[in-house]
Amino acid sequence: MQKLFNIAHKSTKTGIGLMSGTSLDGLDIALCSFTGSGLQTQFKLLQFTTIPYPQRFKDEVQQVFARKTADLEQVTLLNAFIGNYHGELVLEALADWGIDPDTVDFIASHGQTIYHAPKRLHRQANYPNATLQIGDGDHLAVKTGILTISDFRQKHIAAGGEGAPLALYGDVLLGSKAGENRILLNIGGIANLTYLPADGEPAKILCTDIGPGNTLIDAACRKYFNVAYDQDSAIANSGKVNEDLLRALLHHAFFEEASPKTTGPELFSLIYVEQAQFRTGTEHIRNEDLVCTLSMFTAVVIETFVKTNIMADNLHIFVSGGGARNPFIMTYLKQALADTPITNTASLGIDPDAKEAILFALLGNEALCGEPMTIGNNPAVLMGKLSFPG
């Protein structure tokens, strides 16, 4: 406890943020330094890497990922295995950077989401919002010898939230600018955004999931083309949008629900796509046309949400996540929102690939020395559970 006290009171802390998303590409590892907390936080990205996951690991996680029923033994084994495995990857990254683990004050780990179940989706009257991330923090801490903060989403739910998106807290601290309306748009597996008003009024800040990001595109690429994703939109650009299927995909109550709201691959899966294809008789369209239509689906969902809920004068959109490198989606958004400058978060000094890992490192810093912040109708809580290495 004395060591924890000493870390919490350091003027500058060195922390690692870990992010493993629904795309299962690999583990994002961001080494950051932090001075201060809350709105006075100053940070610097010292190192960043993504270590790809081997196919065998992806296959094992997919067995329990976003499924209503799963092998309980497999979930239990993966919970311990992922914590230890992520610890190994952290040590590998630190060795590559020539950094002694003893100089790192903390690790902030998102873990691996395997099921996200807000009450709006599970609709079971006697049960609350729920979510589950595996990759136990104790295993990470013992493996690396570094204080680990993990399982951030549970406190958010316990305090009345849905456990996502947690980007809100970091986006407010790192992305706000007086006099400029901003949207920080992350297109990961799921697309989410944070709206930061020019006047800084907390009640106007909005952080919400929008709908599918890359999840459906990637799933279709894996199934029909045996590739992890649509590199440079080559598949989408060789296809044609099927308008009937697109309309069916856009027809879901989720898009009409009030924000903030959350979703995941539990809803937006290939089953969702197959049901839409069945309703429209489009089961036999070319695979290229399917990927093209799914890419347009993501782009139109983002465009519609922005135009319906946020359009404001002097608005600037900053994009991060894998979708920021999808030419099909980005070209469409720049044309559809032609009066709104759209760039990636590098123009804010935030590596767009590293952004989510940075945000979890920041949440770790807040857990150690911050104070709960009231932002709109979001829970004012400090998140994360502490795991000591010894």
Rank of each mutant, 00 (worst) to 15 (best):
E243T: 13
T208A: 07
T331H: 14
K355A: 10
F305Y: 10
I235W: 05
H110V: 01
I16L: 02
H316N: 10
H139N: 11
A219Y: 04
K155V: 12
T14D: 03
I350A: 03
S11Y: 07
T12L: 02
S233Y: 12
S387D: 01
G322P: 08
F48L: 08
R123S: 05
N314R: 12
A299P: 00
P389K: 01
F106Y: 14
G170L: 08
I235N: 04
D71W: 09
D199E: 05
D199C: 06
T282R: 10
D102P: 00
L184I: 15
G323H: 03
F305G: 02
S33A: 12
N214E: 11
P52F: 06
I205A: 08
G189C: 12
I149K: 00
A108E: 05
A159Q: 12
K10Q: 12
G175Y: 06
D102Y: 08
Q42A: 11
I302Q: 02
P372M: 08
H156Y: 06
V90G: 02
N344R: 04
E60N: 04
T113V: 09
Y169K: 13
T208V: 13
C292Q: 09
I205V: 15
A367L: 11
P128A: 00
P101G: 08
K334L: 11
E257W: 08
A276D: 02
V142D: 10
T308Y: 01
I134A: 06
K155R: 14
P54R: 03
K3A: 07
D28K: 04
G36S: 04
R56C: 08
